[in-house]
């Protein structure tokens, strides 16, 4: 809980701020994850494109099996209540996350959790291994280039970020007392009032 603040009092007792509506819906993490998945699904990389890339000039039967395993792992992560589109989108996310990783590290765990919430670690391990086997015959750079060319996260169409050249200072106000506490008074503590 935040300590008592002047601006809290001003918001409560003056009429210059927008009054907070206590009935307003606050977006929780679950809603946010759903929205992130929805936004991710709209990005350039799709399951069909990944399948096309993996099945191009390769041992199709073996790659097919790996793609199927990746979808299965994605289903375990995204939850069985979701439809095929959600599962495929999750598989795309896992492919993008693990295409240049050989194990499930903290960053990857966090990224998956931020997208899907709590998930079975075995499914993450399985998807990481699947992606490694899918990528191996294709070559790292080819996959990397392919992902970068399609994923809007890697290839933003938007302008440069506002304020990127602004020198921002993280300094914050610190206590700057006028004087030290008189030592004699500190020693008098034992004879002071108690409550």
């Amino acid at each position: 809980m935040s300590p008592p603040r002047l601006t809290g009092a001003l918001r409560s007792f003056s009429s210059v701020s927008k009054k907070e509506d206590i009935n307003e819906r606050l977006y929780d993490l679950k809603t946010k994850r759903l929205k992130r998945r929805e936004l991710f699904a709209r990005e350039g990389l799709t399951w069909q494109k990944i399948a096309h890339l993996c099945l191009d000039h390769q041992d199709n039967a073996k790659q097919q099996a790996e793609l199927k395993s990746l979808l299965q792992a994605a289903k375990e992560i995204v939850g069985t209540e979701h439809g095929q589109a959600a599962v495929e989108s999750a598989a795309v996310f896992l492919f993008e996350t693990f295409h240049n990783k050989d194990h499930v590290g903290t960053e990857e765990t966090r990224a998956i959790k931020q997208m899907f919430g709590p998930f079975p670690s075995s499914a993450a391990e399985a998807s990481c291994a699947c992606v490694a086997r899918l990528v191996a015959p294709l070559g790292d750079s080819r996959v990397e280039n392919y992902i970068q060319s399609l994923s809007s996260r890697h290839n933003p169409q938007r302008g440069p970020s506002f304020g990127r050249n602004i020198a921002f200072s993280y300094d914050c106000y610190a206590l700057d007392p006028l004087e030290e506490m008189p030592r004699s008074d500190v020693n008098e503590e034992n004879v002071s009032l108690d409550f």
Partner: peptide, 28 residues
Amino acid sequence: AVRKRNFDATGLQEDLWKRLSHSCRKIV
């Protein structure tokens, strides 16, 4: 009050004194 009272936590008295003294400076 800060000088004379007993405080539960170690360092709290010193901390409160610093905050009061800081407030004095800011008012000045």
